[in-house]
Write a protein that binds this DNA or RNA. Structure first.
Lengths: 377, 377
DNA sequence: CCTGTCTTTGAATCTCCCG
DNA sequence: TCGGGAGATTCAAAGACAG
C-alpha cells in the first residue's frame, strides 16, 4: 500500500533513472525504502521522531508519572522499542545508499545516543558529530537545567571505506578562508519560512531551518545527486534540494505534511546550473606533469631550484627529474629526501628566482593549467 | 589489592565520614567504587577512555608529526568490549551515588553514544547534554572532514526522581544575567596549566582545562560536597575541588599520573578561589562568514556583485564562492584576482544593488550580525 | 618593557589514482 | 585487492626570541 505524490517539478528527468525522483512517497519509510533499488541514493538526511518515552508520558490520561516511568520494565520496553524502530529504518536506509553514500541524522539528547550507537552497530562509519547551536533557543522556564540551546547531527559514511563527497574548498571559502568547524550557528525556523495552516498555527512542530539543509547539501552532495529524506515532514530537504539543483526523494506518512510539502516545493524556482556549481577542488584540477614545464620552455634544463629558506637546492634535468647531491627523482621524491621527510609536495616546496622574486614552481603550473583549461573550454 | 595515596590536604576532616576523602585510590575504578559505601557520593565526574581507534600516524602539512593518543588504556577490541567496560563502571558508579546524586561524563563521537545509551539503559536520567566548544581545536589536516571542534558532556541524575543540585542563579550571574546555555566555550588545556614531565613532555595526553571543571562543580555541587572521579588522570577534578572547597575522591591506575596529581594538588591552597581566576571567555563579536548570508537567504545564488566603480563583476554561487570569468574562490580571493592585487577585503570591495542603492555586502553582514546578537541576548 | 615575528602544539577514527 | 607514488593538507594560543 504505497502511494506516491508527484511534485510538478522534476529536474533533469531525462536522466533515465528508475528512481522516483523529486517525488514524495506516502507511507511507512521502511516499506518504501525496501521497494527502492539497492545502492541508488547519494545522501540520506533523516530527522526521525525523538524518543517515544516523552510522548508516552505526555499522552497518559491520568498524568501520573509515578508508576509510568519509574518501573524498570516500562523504561526498558520503551528504549527497546525505540531501538527496534531505529535499527529497522537505518538498516533499510543503508541498503538504498550507494557504496560511497552517506547519511545525516539529527536529534536531541533524548534519542541521539540511541541513533549513534545503532549507526556504529550497523557498520556505518561516523565522520563527524555536528552541533547546531540555536541562536534563539527556548529558555528553560523552570530554571532547573541549562538552556537546551543545541541539537546534534551525526554525519556517517555507509561504511568505513566509503569515499564520501565532502566539498572541503567550498566550506572553507564560505567560512572566510578557515576550515568549517563542527559547531554551526543558526536561528531556529521562524517568521515567513515557518509554514502555517489556515488557523495560523504551525503545520509541523519541528520544522528545520532551510539554512541548516543548505549547509548540509552544499557540503556533502554534488549538483544532480539524489537525496533521500525518510521523515520528510513539510519538505525542507526537498525545498533546499530543488534550490540547489539536487534531486530528492521524500517519504512521509502524514497526509497533511505531504500536502504542505507539495505546495511549498512547487513554489520554488530551481537553482540555475552556474549558480549551484561546486568549486573545483584542487585534487580535481587539470593534471600538469612537471615535465611539461620543461617541454613548454617555462623552465630550462640546468635551472637551480631551492626551498623557501634556501636550505636545499636541486638541479632540473631535461627528463623532468631533479638532482640534489646523491638524490635524484621526481620533484616530490627529492623534496622529501633532502628534508628526510616521508613525503613532500614538490610543487609547493621547490622555488625558483623569477626576476628577483622567489616563487614556488606551482605558479608556473597554474599558468599552464589556465592555458590548458582555456583551450579545452 | 587496593592502594591509597593520601594527599596532604584533607579539608573538613572532622566530618566523621568513613569515606576516603581528598585521596587518590590507586587501581581499578570498579573494584575501588565497590569497596566504598553505597549512596555516599554527591557527584561523579568521569573522563573515560574514548576508544579512538586510530589506524595510522598523522602529519601536519609541514611534515611534523602529531603526537596522537596511542596509550594502551585507550585500546578496546570492539564496541562490545567497550560497552562491557562502560556498563561495568557506570553500574558501580550508580551504587556509590547518593539518591539525589548526579554524574557528568565527557566524550567524543567515538564513545559518547555508547555512554549515553548505557546511562539510559542503567536508569540514569539524562538532564542535559553539554557541548564544550574548543576555542583552539586541532585542525583537520587532510581537509577531509569538518574541524573536530567540540567534545560532548552528559549530565545525568542517578534516577528520574533524583532532586539534583543545580545552582541556577550562580550560572545565570556568571553568564551576564542570561541563562547558561548548553554550549560552552573554553580553550583547550595548554601553557602553564598543562603538566609537563622532566623532558618537557606532557604528562597526560588529554588533560582537561580547569575552567571546564570550575563550571561543572560551581553549577552542580555545594561547598563540602564529595566529588568522585573514577578516571582521575592528573587530577584536574581534585585540583578544582580543592580550590572550590569541595571534597574529592580520585581513582587512577597509572602510577605516573597519580604522582603528578598528588604533587599538583598539594601545591594548591584550599578555597583560594580568587587566586585562580576562572577564564570566562568574553563573548567575541559574532562571526558571520560570507556563506551564511546565502544559507540564511539574504543573498540568492546567481546574484551579480560588482565593485563601487562597476569595473568588475562576479556571480555568487550557492556554495559561497564567487565566479568572475576564469577566476573562482572566496569573495576576498576573487576580489584580489580581478584587480591583479595581492589581497582584497571582499566585504568592502564587492557591492550589490539594494533597491537602487549600491551598497557593500558588508552591510548585510552587519545586519545579520545584529540580528544574531539580538537573538542570543 | 613593549611589540612584532617565529615556533610549537593539541582526544584525529584525516588521500587518491593507477597498474 | 594491494602496493607504490603523486600530491594535497592547518588554526588558535602560548611561549620564545629579537629588536
Amino acid at each position: 500500500m504505497l502511494h506516491t505524490a508527484r511534485t510538478a517539478f522534476q529536474a533533469d528527468a531525462d536522466k533515465g533513472q528508475v528512481l522516483p525522483v523529486d517525488t514524495i512517497l506516502v507511507g511507512d519509510c521502511v516499506s518504501h525504502m525496501n521497494a527502492l533499488p539497492a545502492g541508488s541514493v547519494d545522501l540520506i538526511f533523516a530527522d526521525p521522531p525523538y524518543n517515544l518515552q516523552l510522548e508516552q508520558g505526555l499522552t497518559r490520561p491520568d498524568q501520573s508519572r509515578v508508576d509510568a516511568v519509574d518501573d524498570d520494565w516500562d523504561k526498558f520496553e520503551s528504549f527497546a522499542h525505540y531501538d527496534v524502530f531505529t535499527r529497522a529504518w537505518l538498516t533499510a536506509a543503508r541498503r538504498v545508499l550507494k557504496p560511497d553514500g552517506a547519511i545525516w541524522v539529527i536529534g536531541s539528547y533524548h534519542n541521539i545516543f540511541r541513533v549513534g550507537s545503532a549507526l556504529q552497530d550497523l557498520d556505518y562509519w561516523l565522520l563527524n558529530d555536528i552541533v547546531w547551536r540555536k541562536a534563539n533557543p527556548m529558555p528553560n522556564f523552570r530554571g532547573t537545567r541549562f538552556t537546551n540551546a543545541h541539537e546534534t547531527l551525526i554525519w556517517a559514511a555507509r561504511g568505513q571505506r566509503s569515499r564520501v563527497t565532502f566539498n572541503y574548498e567550498a566550506m572553507k571559502l564560505a567560512n572566510d578562508e578557515t576550515q568549517m568547524r563542527s559547531d554551526w550557528l543558526f536561528p531556529i525556523c521562524t517568521g515567513a519560512e515557518r509554514l502555517k495552516d489556515g488557523n495560523d498555527e504551525k503545520v509541523h512542530p519541528t520544522q528545520k531551518p532551510e539554512a541548516l539543509l543548505f549547509r548540509i547539501l552544499n557540503a556533502t552532495t554534488r549538483p544532480g545527486d539524489v537525496v533521500l529524506d525518510p521523515f520528510f515532514g513539510t519538505g525542507t530537504t526537498g525545498a533546499v534540494a530543488k534550490k540547489l539543483g539536487r534531486h530528492f526523494i521524500g517519504i512521509e506518512r502524514e497526509d497533511a505534511y505531504v500536502a504542505a510539502a507539495l505546495k511549498r516545493i512547487a513554489a520554488i524556482k530551481p537553482g540555475a546550473r552556474e549558480a549551484v556549481a561546486v568549486t573545483t577542488p584542487k585534487r580535481k584540477e587539470t593534471k600538469v606533469p612537471f615535465g611539461s614545464l620543461i617541454e613548454q620552455g617555462l623552465i630550462a634544463p640546468g635551472t637551480q631550484l631551492f626551498d623557501a629558506q634556501k636550505r636545499f637546492s636541486a638541479m632540473v634535468r631535461a627528463d623532468g627529474s631533479l638532482v640534489s647531491g646523491p638524490h635524484q627523482g621526481s620533484i616530490h621524491k627529492v623534496g622529501a629526501l633532502v628534508q628526510g621527510a616521508e613525503s613532500c609536495n614538490g610543487w609547493m616546496f621547490w622555488h625558483h628566482d623569477l626576476d628577483g622574486r622567489i616563487v614556488p614552481i606551482d605558479e608556473m603550473r597554474s599558468s599552464i593549467r589556465a592555458q590548458l583549461d582555456l583551450l579545452s573550454a
